[in-house]
């Protein structure tokens, strides 16, 4: 790892100021991706601004069906929140299957979303739940937030402070993890609203990152059952091919994961 300078602010305002004064600063949330990347010398930030000690970034609030999750809330805290479990158990289940217990004790929802790894789980949930990404300066709809592989709409120095969404009537997430890395080779989050609107978001498979599948959404809006997607074909042309799976295989996985998710919702 190259040399770096560590800072520990206690407020969002202080964090923004610190990053503004750094040559090539980076925010450090749980660090479960960033520290590993720095060890490989694939990242070499001059300064690290630690967000783990900012109280205003933490905590889960549920008001009726309206949910707010602070950006520095760990996967462990999302997975074990009784309040959240009562209105949106799907997001608790998703968080409980990220990495391993030790990673879940450090990794945060804001860090995962800001990193936008194409195989990360949370981006699919954000899109399917029609979540709003709240930052220190604005609110960004999930649909506008994830702009490509490891790319987001965040400006330099902008901090995600919270994620908000309205809990859907039904939702579930199913993934097919790579047997070695456990990252999703295809992960599908389905959500159905009281008005019948359905969202199907896919992670781990798109060559441009997380995406919605309109064909399956329309089929499931008409008939909310695993069989409804039986005749939908998933176009493999925009899917990833790598040493783990071909695009055609991922296309099949997406369909199977969607069926499992609908059955589980």
């Amino acid at each position: 790892m190259y040399q770096t300078n560590y800072h520990r602010p206690s407020s969002v305002q202080e964090a923004v100021k610190l990053i503004g004064g750094a040559a090539e600063g980076k925010y450090l949330a749980g660090g479960m991706t960033l520290i590993a990347t720095m060890k490989q010398r694939l990242a070499a930030p001059s300064d690290l601004v630690d967000l783990r000690h900012i109280a205003e970034l933490k905590g889960i609030t549920v008001n009726g069906r309206s949910v707010r999750i602070g950006a520095a809330t760990t996967h462990h805290d999302v997975a074990s929140s009784a309040e959240l479990e009562a209105v949106c158990p799907a997001i608790c289940a998703l968080a409980s299957h990220i990495g391993d217990p030790h990673v879940r004790h450090m990794g945060t929802i804001g860090g995962s979303i800001a990193n936008n790894d194409p195989a990360a789980d949370y981006p699919a949930a954000m899109l399917a739940l029609d979540a709003t990404i709240v930052t220190n300066s604005r609110q960004i709809a999930a649909a506008d937030f994830f702009t490509g592989l490891f790319e987001t709409a965040l400006d330099d120095g902008e901090i995600i402070t919270a994620i908000t969404f309205d809990a859907p009537a039904k939702a579930a997430y199913q993934k097919f993890p790579n047997p070695a890395s456990r990252y999703a080779m295809a992960g599908v989050f389905v959500a159905r609203r009281d008005n019948g609107e359905v969202r199907v978001a896919v992670t781990g498979a798109g060559s441009n990152g997380v995406f919605r599948h309109q064909g399956m959404e329309a089929a499931l809006a008409g008939n909310w059952s695993p069989d409804a997607v039986g005749n939908i074909s998933v176009d493999a042309s925009d899917l990833l091919t790598d040493l783990h799976a071909s695009a055609a295989y991922r296309a099949k996985l997406i369909k199977v994961m969607t069926k499992r998710a609908v059955a589980a919702a």
Binding site: Y6, R8, L28, G31, M32, I35, A36, L48, D50, R52, H76, P101, H102, V103, H105, M106
Partner: peptide, 14 residues
Amino acid sequence: LSVKSCSILAVQAA
């Protein structure tokens, strides 16, 4: 809480 000490900086644990 259990954590992986190879993936955390010592300064983070101060």
